[in-house]
């Protein structure tokens, strides 16, 4: 564990707390993509099934349980308690275009040919693009509540912090995880456009609005 990874994980944790706070404070899931949240549940379940078979650390186990349960809870909030505030008509990204290619990539690129390992690869590839329905929705509506942009910024920061973590591990431990690194760089790149608007508008006290 190094500081980049630790702060990355904390940023990930914070993003979920911000998301739950947004839903609670506005009593609404408006502006959130159900598809993205459902993809995150898929990602966490696919990757963290090993919580039953592998033990890394107490920290690792607790985080896995937190990510699986909190992402499922968000789905419940979107489809249960706050269902009336969810608008599926603007959440139109076709997730099958993500699931299919990620499944194919996982069948081609993995470290071992076993069910859990292929599932692990699938979750890595899927996580890298899981934010797309949300970004697509943002693009479509052209605006976002400030609190929602803080959620996205924390999520993006988590991914960005993993990159120096890999560089650090490369020279301190001499290890490299090509699948995670490749997917992680793609994932971080997807946030660049969002970050540009976040830094130039939201952090200057303006509303998140995209030029028409």
């Amino acid at each position: 564990m190094n500081l980049f990874r630790f702060f990355g994980d904390m940023s990930h944790l914070a993003s979920i707390l911000i998301l739950l706070y947004k839903i609670h404070a506005t009593r609404s899931v408006r502006g959130l993509s159900f598809k993205t949240q459902a993809l995150y549940v898929t990602v966490f379940v696919a990757r963290y099934l090993d919580v039953f078979t592998e033990f890394v650390s107490v920290y690792n186990t607790l985080m896995k349980i937190f990510f699986i349960s909190s992402s499922c809870f968000v789905l419940y909030l979107m489809k249960g308690r706050y269902r009336p505030t969810n608008d599926p008509s603007i959440d139109t990204f076709r997730v099958e275009y993500l699931l299919g290619p990620c499944a194919l990539l996982a069948l081609i690129f993995h470290y071992r040919w076993s069910f859990l390992e292929v599932l692990w690869s699938f979750s890595i590839f899927l996580e890298s693009v899981a934010i797309l329905p949300q970004l697509f929705m943002l693009q479509r509506t052209g605006e976002a509540e400030t609190i929602t942009t803080h959620y996205l910024a924390a999520l993006g920061a988590y991914r960005a912090l993993y990159i120096p973590n890999w560089i650090y591990r490369y020279w301190s431990e001499d290890v490299i995880d090509p699948i995670a690194v490749t997917a992680g760089i793609v994932q971080t790149a997807l946030y660049l456009d969002f970050f540009y608007v976040y830094f130039t508008k939201v952090l200057q006290g303006q509303k998140f609005e995209l030029p028409a």
Binding site: R47, V56, N60, Y111, R112, D174, I176
Partner: peptide
């Protein structure tokens, strides 16, 4: 460098 294949990251 060697590939980790160890999934110790989240």
């Amino acid at each position: 460098a060697q590939e980790t294949g160890l999934h110790d990251e989240l």
